[in-house]
Design a protein around this nucleic acid. Structure first.
Lengths: 195, 195
DNA sequence: TGTCTATCTGAACATCCGTTCAATTCAATC
DNA sequence: GATTGAATTGAACGGATGTTCAGATAGACA
């Protein structure tokens, strides 16, 4: 096996994260062993510990990097003057993000309970920050009379739950284009807030 | 330990299912050991095998019984003449069911991937049957002009995803009454179908 | 009172788990 | 060609896992 000093690690490190992400998303954190991840990478289990201190940190780093990327992407994407425009931007962004990074998104809401309490707290802070972005849009729209919400927090969570639903089936319906799914969810979201 | 022939089994059997349900829902199927379940019941691990052939069947039976109960409950509850009334009944039923049996519902959509392929297929058939109940309501409403749906299947799944969202937070907001949550979700569901 | 039998224990089975580490490999450097 | 050091192996660690089963226990019945 070829080994170049200081360069092979640049391959193995990301490869481990990619394999762990895919396997965790497919079978669940608890059901995937370190040997299984190593085998997928093409390496022995011991080698993983050159790149992560333990399995728990491997999961945590995947979720943390995902949340950081999600927040940064939204910060770059957010736009719109009116609450309605801002909500449309959010819905499109959210659905698109789910298409592009389905494993990360799926993992981040399925494996929260396998994080240690400390790590859970850190991820939860970021998750709430993202949720607050939507909540702010809905809040402004409700205040301006553009939306009519039964309850701010409940609507925020219900809308995120609805949008996350794409995750469970989007692979099946190959005949629906991403753009049509995006538009449909925007129509339903607009209905939810009675705009 | 007192033991009455032919009667103690009537206690231990259901106790095992209750413990397994709660522990699986809390920590996940793969993360809960048979010894842990036995300890919760107040029995040794070996005794579990008088009531289930193996761990996999224990999970499957929990999900199967839940789905059978869900379908039977809906059959008993379904009512309404117009699509709008039928939809309202469905939304109220679904939200109420989630309140009353949150562990079962949570388990049934978190642990599907830990079922063997055969068992997964059996549960999936029942899950689709339930989904079809909502789809039929939406289909009739769309045909009669009462609803305006972008896509029948997408709307069905998006609505179930939204309603399932209650599971993730309903414990926190103790200040919201069940009735108010029910009404809010009905308002949002009605908006989603543009009724 | 003694027998029967449903119920449960306690110990064992093979196998897997996450993790550690001395020994090895080999590209890069001198 | 010899040396260096990053990258990886392979074997081992203690412990947990699902499952089995001969034997103990104790209520029910003769």
């Amino acid at each position: 096996m070829a080994r170049k000093t200081g360069s092979h690690a640049d391959i193995t490190g990301p490869a481990i994260k990619a394999s762990a992400l895919r396997l965790f998303a497919r079978s669940g954190y608890a059901a995937v062993s370190m040997r299984e991840i190593a085998g997928d990478v093409g390496v022995r289990a011991g080698a993983l510990y050159l790149y992560t201190p333990d399995k728990q940190t491997l999961l945590f780093d995947l979720l943390r990097e995902h949340m950081e990327h999600l927040l940064a992407s939204w910060t770059a994407a957010k736009s719109g003057a009116t609450p309605l425009e801002r909500l449309e931007t959010f819905v499109h962004f959210h659905v698109d993000y789910h298409f592009d990074r389905s494993d990360e998104v799926f993992l981040s809401y399925m494996e929260l309970r396998n994080l240690s309490p400390d790590n859970f707290g850190r991820i939860e802070v970021m998750r709430r920050r993202y949720e607050a972005e939507l909540e702010a849009i809905l809040c402004d729209g409700d205040a301006s009379g553009a939306f009519h919400l039964p309850d701010l927090r409940v609507t925020t969570r219900a809308m995120i739950a609805m949008l996350n639903g794409v995750l469970t089936w989007y692979r099946e319906d190959g005949h629906l284009s991403r753009d049509s799914i995006r538009k449909m969810h925007w129509q339903m979201a607009r209905g939810m807030v009675q705009a």
